[in-house]
Each structure stands twice: as structure tokens, then as C-alpha cells.
Computed example of a mutant assay.
Amino acid sequence: MMRSPMLRLGALPPIRVSPGTLVTVLLLAVLMYPALSRGGAEQGTVVLLAVGIGLFMIVSVLVHEVAHALTARAFGATVDHIALTLWGGHTQYRARQMPALGSMLVSLSGPASNAALAAVAAGAIRLTETGSSLAVFFTVSAWLNLALALFNLLPGLPMDGGRALESLLAAALRNRVLATRITAWAGRAIAVGVVVTPLAHVVRTGGAGSLSLLTLVWAMLIAGLLWQGASRALDGAALQARIRTLDASGLAVPVRIVPPQAPLSELGAAEELERVLLLDRTAAGPDRLGRAHRIDLAAAASVPPEHRATTPAQAVASSVGDIAALPAAAQGDALIEAMLSRPAPAYLVLGENSTVLGVIMSADVNALLRRR
């Protein structure tokens, strides 16, 4: 699969430009052409105006995303890249803890930049001759940037206004999950409105005109994108709700720690073998307690009674992999962060005085988080 080209402009984050960006320019030009052609200008001039406006809107989207990126940086976030796509753009950044005000300003900086561009374009109109191609260019660009700013300020996810409202509600309600759900459902309502508005116009006008139908198709595509973004936000809220329920001490399965060389005869019957965890401490490292193994019950059962005293447990065990430690008090996000900081297939949960409370398998936690 061909990767999108990456642009680097000075100190700005890398800018990934999707081939779909060119499609956006052409679609905008097609949408603008009928309205621009009514002014009586030559066809070549109208085409240049339409394409020029399409290109300027891509620049406007880039300015929008740069505003997000620079504001996020100002609040200590790490900005990975800016992406320009068929549907506009997005800024990928990571922030451990950002205050509600910071999150709101990051969200609102994009629409604010488009409002500023609209003001600049409106001011430039006064410097051009009335009715000239430049006057038309700046007039349309001003209105489109204003529309882009207002559209992004709509209070529903994944719009910037929705993200700002989400941050505000999260601070007011002290419940990020509920705030996300409220703004995501608002985003779904906006998606429905994006389709219903042009559809009502088509019905009112009897469906006449290719522009009306093209606008309706474009609106349906945008609505689908908005609905998908809102749905992802709801999925994220559900995941966050499940993370909140995680508790290291509650997830810990009791185990009996045994050295790999222990004779099989000392480990008890089959039901006791299920609780045995062999820990090879010679493989310990800075973030590892050692290498863990679990008894293969079928292999253990096949060992004759007279040989169990001379058979080391490791001979009938399968490797679990490296094992790390987790504090018993770890819960929710703190538990996930602790696991991500020390990735391992298994973790011993340690209580006071490093008492082993049990073991947590990474696969079990993943299964809990995927459950719907």
C-alpha cells in the first residue's frame, strides 16, 4: 500500500498529504463552478476561480490543523503529525494530562483560525475592484472559511465544538465517559441534520438541478463520516468505562509460586497443579521478576507415580513468558499505564511487603476490554 507523502515545513509537525486531497480540490471546484459561472465571466476564468478556491480551502484546512498542533504543543502535548485527507484533515497528538481549559483551547483554535482567515479575506475585498475575479475569489473564500469555522463549532463529536463541549462537561460533571456519550450523541444528531437539510431542499424544489443532487450526495458522505466519528467516540467511552472497573487485586488469580526445579511429587493433585506458577528468577531483569511457566496438566498426569519424585516441574510445563510486577492498589487508567510501561504476558500482583496476591494474564485483560 502506497504511503501518503510527508511534507516538512520548518518547525511545524510533519504534514501527511493524502491523494484524496486532490479529489477534494476537484469536488470543491465542481460544486463552485455553477454559482461562479452565473457572473458572466469567461469559462476559463471561471474554471481558474473554482480551482483556486478549492486550493485555498485546502490551505485553510492546513491552517486550521496547524492551529490545533501549535496550541497542543503550547500545553505540553507531543504532536506526531498533521494529515490532509479527502475529508479535510486531522492532527495526531499525545498528551498525558491536559487541563480542561487546555483541551478546550486546542479544540477551538482551529475554528478560530478559519474565522481569522475569513476576516482577512473580507478585508482583502476592499482592495479589489468590485465585480473583478479577485473580488469574487476573496468573497467566496471569506464565506467558505466562515462556514468552515461555524460548522466545526457545532457542539457534537467529532467536531471541534463537540470536543470543546466534551472537555467542559467532563470538568463540570467530573465524568469523562458521560461527557463523551452526551457529545457523541449530539454528533449523531448533527449527522442526521446534515442529510435532512439538503434532502428537504430537494423535496421542496421537486428534485430539480444537478447541483441540488450533488450537494445531497456530498452531504450524505459528510454525514456518514460524522456518524462514524461519533460512533467511534461512543466505542471509546464504552472502553473507558470498562477500564474504570479494572482493579489489580480483583483481577488477580491466586497462585502458588514454585521454583522450576521443584519435584512434581511436591506440587499436589491435579486441582492444586492448576494454581502452580513456576518462576525462574535467574531470568530476572530491571523490569522483570523472571520467566514464568504453567504446568501442563495432561503432561503431568502422564508421569508414572514412581517417577514423580524425580521429575522436575519444569519438565511438564509450558512457558508463559516474562513476568512483571503490578501493585495491588493499581486501578483503572493507572493499571493500564502500569501494564503498558512494562509489557509482559503475565504480572504478579504484589500487596504489602511484596506479598504475592495472584497473577494477571495480559490476554485476560485484553478480553475484558474487548467485551461489549
Rank of each mutant, 00 (worst) to 15 (best):
339 M>Y: 06
44 G>V: 07
119 A>N: 10
294 R>A: 06
194 V>R: 12
79 V>W: 10
155 P>C: 09
333 D>T: 15
114 N>Y: 01
324 A>P: 15
222 I>A: 03
149 A>L: 00
339 M>S: 07
273 L>S: 14
362 S>E: 11
100 A>E: 12
215 T>N: 05
61 V>Q: 01
55 L>V: 12
297 L>S: 14
357 L>R: 14
139 T>I: 05
360 I>E: 02
94 R>W: 08
295 I>Y: 07
237 A>I: 08
175 N>I: 11
59 V>C: 04
133 S>W: 03
167 S>E: 08
59 V>L: 07
143 W>A: 09
221 L>M: 15
71 T>H: 03
27 L>S: 11
247 D>Q: 02
5 P>Q: 02
40 G>L: 06
122 A>G: 13
65 E>C: 00
148 L>Y: 02
44 G>L: 08
31 L>M: 13
317 A>I: 15
355 T>N: 10
220 M>F: 01
48 L>K: 05
185 W>Q: 12
244 R>F: 01
338 A>S: 13
36 L>A: 09
67 A>L: 05
170 A>Q: 10
241 A>E: 14
280 D>Y: 09
110 G>W: 02
332 G>L: 06
269 A>K: 06
68 H>S: 07
14 P>S: 14
213 L>H: 07
38 R>Y: 10
71 T>Y: 07
221 L>A: 11
302 S>H: 10
45 T>Y: 02
363 A>P: 09
18 S>G: 15
10 G>W: 00
62 L>P: 02
176 R>L: 05
125 I>A: 11
61 V>G: 01
229 G>Q: 08
254 P>T: 11
366 N>Y: 09
285 G>L: 12
351 G>R: 04
111 P>Q: 02
347 Y>G: 12
261 Q>F: 10
155 P>F: 08
84 L>D: 07
286 P>A: 15
93 Y>N: 04
245 T>Y: 00
106 V>N: 04
369 L>E: 00
248 A>I: 02
176 R>E: 09
253 V>G: 10
287 D>C: 04
59 V>P: 03
260 P>I: 03
313 A>F: 10
354 S>Y: 05
324 A>Q: 12
124 A>S: 03
338 A>K: 06
367 A>F: 03
162 G>P: 00
358 G>Q: 07
299 A>L: 15
348 L>A: 05
372 R>E: 14
81 H>Q: 06
35 A>C: 04
143 W>C: 13
18 S>M: 08
358 G>K: 06
126 R>K: 09
250 G>N: 06
345 P>H: 11
64 H>L: 01
83 A>R: 07
357 L>V: 03
